[in-house]
């Protein structure tokens, strides 16, 4: 028997890719993303204000000598003041101009101070009335937030939420900021 070799002829036809569903999906995705897009990312700076209470604090500060850090903000300058609550107070002052470079220098000094007194995680900020919120927020940034190169300080020992405190230790230089000037006349 003779076999006839049939050659399979491949016939190329014009194949058209239907891209309409693709365009539909893209359009829907585009619309959704444009509606939900947030072009301005908003963050927060957490601060406290002094609160007067009759209840004594758990560990009586009258007996202990605590290191304290204050930052005085005026239109022209930012001054770090360090002292102890009990004598000898060994107070020191470090003034810096209130501008971009001055705030950077202030941050470096604060990092140095924190390195020497790692247990003090609270800083009190006193601001003059005529300081703008823009200027004050720049100072708060410098006092609160860690920047690249700053050491990571251990989380507060008395923290209720250990996990949160450890996370905060990586973000903040001084996690507790008290706005000291907010006192009723």
């Amino acid at each position: 028997m003779s076999r006839k070799k049939k050659k399979n002829k491949v016939e190329y036809k014009d194949v058209e890719l239907n891209i309409m569903p693709f365009i539909d999906v893209f359009s829907m995705l585009n619309t959704f993303l444009l509606f939900t897009a947030v072009f301005l990312s908003v963050g927060i700076l957490e601060v406290q204000i002094p609160f007067l209470s009759n209840t004594p604090p758990p560990d009586d500060p009258k007996e202990s000598r605590i290191f304290q850090v204050n930052v005085d903000v005026s239109k022209e300058q930012v001054e770090i003041q360090t002292s102890y609550t009990r004598p000898p107070d060994q107070s020191q002052k470090f003034p810096f101009p209130n501008n971009g470079e001055g705030v950077k220098q202030m941050h470096q000094k604060l990092a140095e101070i924190r390195k020497q007194n790692a247990d003090t995680d609270k800083a009190t900020v006193f601001s003059e009335d005529d300081v703008s919120w823009e200027s004050l927020s720049a100072v708060l940034d410098g006092v609160m937030l860690r920047i690249e190169g700053d050491p990571v300080f251990p989380a507060a020992k008395d923290a209720k939420n250990r996990e949160k405190a450890e996370l905060e230790a990586k973000v903040y230089l001084y996690p507790k900021i008290v706005m000291g000037s907010v006192m009723l006349r």
């Binding site: 301005l40 927060i44 957490e46 406290q48 204000i49 009335d129 005529d130 004050l136 927020s137 706005m179």
Partner: peptide, 26 residues
């Protein structure tokens, strides 16, 4: 100015609010 912020914070202090989250642009 901080003067206005202080007034608001003082008002809040009298209403027993002591924690503030101040909004900033990242």
């Amino acid at each position: 100015r901080f003067k206005l912020m202080k007034r608001i914070m003082l008002s809040a202090q009298q209403a027993e609010f002591v924690q503030f989250k101040l909004m900033v642009q990242k």
